[in-house]
Design a binder for these strands. Structure first.
Lengths: 386, 386
DNA sequence: CCCCTACTGTAAGGTTCCTTTACAATTAAC
DNA sequence: GTTAATTGTAAAGGAACCTTACAGTAGGGG
């Protein structure tokens, strides 16, 4: 009870539970809401009246069929707030605008080289996306941004991003000043992990990891249903993982040519494909092998072995229930690669997770950013202030 | 609110908060309790009356000094419940009995070879300890047991314990049948981690790890203030961690001669000491080096390097704020070894935790088991049933 | 076609649990 | 020896839930 601040604690809790319920289950009747939230019909009615007065819910229809009168269906008002999510890549910025219910209204793109600095790039992309969505920038409750690089969990600012020289410490402050509203920045791999958890393979799984295998290498760690960022935001930087067969990394330079990074990045895969006498990029060879090309078979087996070498270390530390393979290589490898990796992990230690490929279609980073932005926007909009 | 079960939810929450407060802060007055729990003086008084009627709190004195009447001091009744904790080792079983306030009343020991089976061994040790404490076994609210080996977090039963052939799946059921009360079994390293968190170096730290370096090798992972056991209870089995410079482990056999285990166990340390031309056991050489023996200096440096090789991998995955070195080697190495390890980790990757030696005196496993047992016993005793 | 049943939505009154205000009793300090 | 701060209890009040009761509506059986 910690000193009931004048703000009605229980009521707010119930109001919020009701809103979350309507968001996840769709429109509900008074009675059903009462059952789900744990309130009587009467109290549920009072709750809905309150939320209606605040402009957060409205009657969206009537329940057909059934004995008595057609009960009114209540739902969250989509225009109660909007969110913009962005994925900042070295060569492309993508954006998505959604309303508070999570419905995507518009997307946008920008070549980052067209803009002079991060704030300009973000402003231009968001301006375009909001215009397409038919809303104004002032209606955005928050901006959620996914980038490569490490984010300081205390400040929420970027510490450094190897691939994006313009995105450095201070960007958060600049964006806040420019937009005058909450700005969230998060590591791209962590966001892919969140996306997978909210709508993909690791949905409902308490302890899981998502291995991002692409140009860079990363890991999203989910412990007890929550993303683990680490004390300095560096959790999951497995490019630096020392594995047998790779030279040990030195210092905090990018470990392009050492450690786990040197074994399984897209570049390393290209080299490996050539070493196996295959033509085409490494990712193409993965696709070929998955589709049954026997020449690419030993290449895929070696890839699985290399992945397992690093992932086994992670499993020994965390013992996750599930390991999702994502990124270009993870997606290309599909369940064939996942199965091989799982078998290889089993030969290396006692903790064997279920290994599966990503189930998110489209851009998982953008999806995760949207999810994170929605969470914050809902806190903003739904939390009673006054 | 989730459908208020007839059990007074708010009241129970407040009652429990008050009890926890009296346990951690010692006796309090009505008014002070109200302030701390967040209740008015009147309600705090009613709360204490309730708990007094249930025999859980009593007046333990009066506050001297101050203006008005001497306020009564209320405290938890120690005899409200008792706990027994055990540490099962291959060659020794130790036990400790404490009352609900955490005051240790007696300890006991047993040579496990004197008993025919685990249940007998536990019974004998507990019987002896309770007798010394002047209580009966029936007054014990729960038994908390620390063992090497892996515990299934779903069932709470042992999966396997390499060093204790008699402790295998089914022991939990046997103990429950024999004692007819809650039995908790937990991995010894995890318990050392809990002890360190509740009264040692990692107290108040959200994300930390404790590396146990002894005959075996283990890691306790604490994420967001909570012990992370992993899906199959195998989190922290870092003996199997593949590191450069050690042969890769195969399958789930004990990795005595491969992986991280082969580099830094007590046995590996003995071998290493000999390789450096030192006499005496590895642990003795660590002590000598720490105390300034220049001959043992290169040995200590190599030990730190080896430790860092494995710990760097852990830091890359988890990015903990703090890393505690425990076990015989960790304790012997003290802050000298810890400092070297920290420096070595810094040279291997971007995530550098503060590395410190354990601050727990006595047996940290027994201490952790007691802590875990107290937590459960308090839930048992303090939770209003009926 | 009519009535019964099951359901919706609101009104009235009750319960739980905490709060504020008021006051007599107590004790250190002036 | 009076004063001021405190303690502990009593009485009244408010927040937020609940149950009961009832008028009104829609589908289905006779």
């Amino acid at each position: 009870m910690s000193r009931a601040p004048k703000t009605h604690l229980i009521r707010d809790t119930n109001d919020r539970a009701a809103l979350d319920l309507m968001l996840s289950n769709g429109p509900v009747t008074k009675t059903r809401l009462g059952e789900l939230v744990g309130l009587s019909k009467v109290t549920a009615g009072q709750l809905l009246t309150r939320l209606g007065d605040r402009g957060l819910v409205e009657v969206v229809g009537a329940q057909q069929g059934g004995r008595g009168p057609n009960a009114a269906l209540y739902g969250v008002v989509p225009s109660a707030g909007y969110v913009a999510a962005l994925h900042i890549g070295p060569d492309q910025i993508t954006a998505s605008v959604a309303d508070i219910t999570g419905t995507e209204l518009a997307t946008g793109e920008l070549d980052p080289h067209e803009a002079s600095d991060p704030v300009e790039a973000v402003r231009a992309t968001v301006a375009h996306a909001t215009r397409s969505a038919g809303i104004t920038m002032s209606q955005l409750r928050c901006l959620s941004i996914g980038t490569p690089g490490m984010i300081d969990p205390r400040t929420g600012d970027i510490r450094f991003a190897n691939d994006l020289p313009d995105w450095r410490a201070g960007v958060l402050e600049d964006l806040r000043r420019s937009f005058q509203r909450p700005i969230l920045i998060e590591n791209d791999v962590n966001l892919a992990g969140l996306a997978e958890q909210s709508a993909g393979a690791s949905h409902g799984v308490k302890d899981s990891v998502l291995a991002w295998i692409d140009r860079g290498l990363g890991l999203a760690v989910i412990v007890d249903g929550r993303l683990h960022r680490g004390a300095g935001g560096g959790a999951g930087e497995i490019g630096y993982l020392a594995v047998p067969g790779a030279s040990t990394p030195h210092g905090t330079d990018s470990p392009q040519h050492a450690a786990f990074q040197s074994l399984v990045s897209v570049e390393a895969m290209d080299t490996l494909a050539r070493a196996f006498g295959l033509s085409g990029s490494g990712v193409d060879c993965v696709r070929a092998a998955v589709e049954g090309d026997v020449d690419a078979e030993p290449f895929l087996e070696e890839l699985a072995r290399r992945l397992a070498l690093g992932l086994a270390g992670i499993c020994v530390v965390l013992d996750p229930e599930l390991c999702v393979l994502a990124g270009e290589v993870g997606r290309a490898g599909g369940s064939v690669l996942a199965g091989r990796v799982q078998k290889a992990i089993a030969s290396l230690g006692p903790n064997v997770p279920t290994v599966v490929p990503t189930e998110i279609s489209g851009d998982p980073v953008l999806r995760g950013a949207l999810q994170m932005g929605l969470d914050t926007a809902r806190d903003e909009v739904f939390t009673h202030q006054g």
